[in-house]
């Protein structure tokens, strides 16, 4: 959703998100909230007060929460990618691609490449979107249907 607000989603994905937003009240509200927060941030209304101990603690707790959320999103992404790899290729292919220590970004890149080659770009993009949907990488997953 944040990427959509920043116009960083591709044309295909943007069209799909826009179609979904036309029908989903919950996601429209999420989008409005994100847009509002962005405006407030840019206006400096939500600048954190780190000149006091209390303010610093707040910032640190926000960073910790962000880290937790990112770790959750990473683990969830890897699970989704593994599921897709096993569905479209099979267990041996999964073991080949998902070696111990493979990062989520690396797994995403490798899976995307294989799906692009064997499934075609449109289908691969759809699978990629499904894997990334609902994962904001900016905190615990927000309840969106995307």
């Amino acid at each position: 959703m944040v990427a959509f607000c920043d116009a960083e989603t591709g044309a295909y994905r943007s069209r799909r998100i826009a179609r979904h937003l036309a029908n989903c009240e919950g996601c429209r509200e999420q989008l409005l909230r994100i847009e509002r927060e962005k405006e407030e941030l840019s206006a400096g209304a939500m600048a954190p007060a780190i000149d006091s101990l209390q303010g610093l603690a707040g910032v640190r707790s926000a960073i910790a929460a962000w880290r937790d959320g990112r770790s959750w999103a990473t683990s969830e992404l890897k699970n989704r990618l593994r599921w897709q790899l096993e569905t479209y290729f099979g267990s041996p292919a999964l073991l080949e691609v998902d070696r111990p220590g493979t990062q989520a970004e690396e797994l995403l890149g490798r899976t995307s490449e294989m799906l692009d080659v064997f499934l075609g770009p449109n289908a691969a993009e759809a699978v990629r979107d499904d894997c990334l949907s609902g994962l904001s990488f900016a905190g615990p997953a927000e309840e969106t249907c995307l």
Binding site: N79, R80, R82, W83, L85, E86, T87, Y88, S91, L94, L95, L115, L119, G120, N122, A123, A124, A126, V127, D130, S133, C145
Partner: peptide
């Protein structure tokens, strides 16, 4: 079949992801 499954609406995918995750992937 593989291509159409990939393009299938997300609504028709299993709601509970963990239930649909194959054993090895889990």
């Amino acid at each position: 079949v593989a291509q159409r499954r990939a393009m299938r609406p997300a609504d028709s995918q299993p709601e509970d992801l963990s239930a649909g995750v194959p054993e090895l992937a889990r």
